[in-house]
Amino acid sequence: MGKIKFYLPAVFFIAIAILLWRGLYLDTRTLPSMLIDKPMPPFSLSTIEGSPISNVDLPNQIFLLNVWGSYCLPCLIEHPTFMRLNEEGAIPVVGVNYKDRNDLALEWLETNGDPFTFSIEDLDGRFGIDLGVYGAPETYLVDADGVIRYRHVSVLDETVWQEEFIPAIAELRAESN
């Protein structure tokens, strides 16, 4: 008993030290999404080309919802991944053009290529608030019933695609079979 008591403070100290050490390396920048397993928020907006768009126009299958903007440099880094996914017909990608200028957005797609089925224009960021967006780029994985199942904050490059999205999509597909 006396021995246990003698070592107790050291054990306690080591336990707390490990806890705090881990805390140093936690990612505090990525907030968990509140919308996981919730349906896509209702919207009635227009595409950046100007045609009206709402929830009924969303793909009736698993798709990605990518929040982008012409001002967003990291969006350029992930852009080739979406171009490739679109070319291969792997998965539809719907864009949300977040707090951008319409002419700049169109120009950006002209220059870099347009991988999006369509891009929803969110000029004042109101739709972004409903999605819980806090800055482009963010990418949501939505299932065939229009329910949000996964969110990735920041760049979705090939590594993230391989390591996070392919397993998540496989899980969704297995579920619906």
């Binding site: 505090t28 920048r29 907030l31 707090k99 004042d124 960021g125 109101r126 972004g128 608030i129 819980g132 967006v133 806090y134 800055g135």
Partner: peptide, 22 residues
């Protein structure tokens, strides 16, 4: 949500501006 340790009133972040408007 974007600037980690600032309240809405103290932030110039885009999303903070939008949330103040809301």
């Amino acid at each position: 949500p974007m600037c980690q340790n600032t309240n809405l009133s103290g932030s110039t972040g885009g999303v903070a501006e939008d949330l103040r408007r809301e």
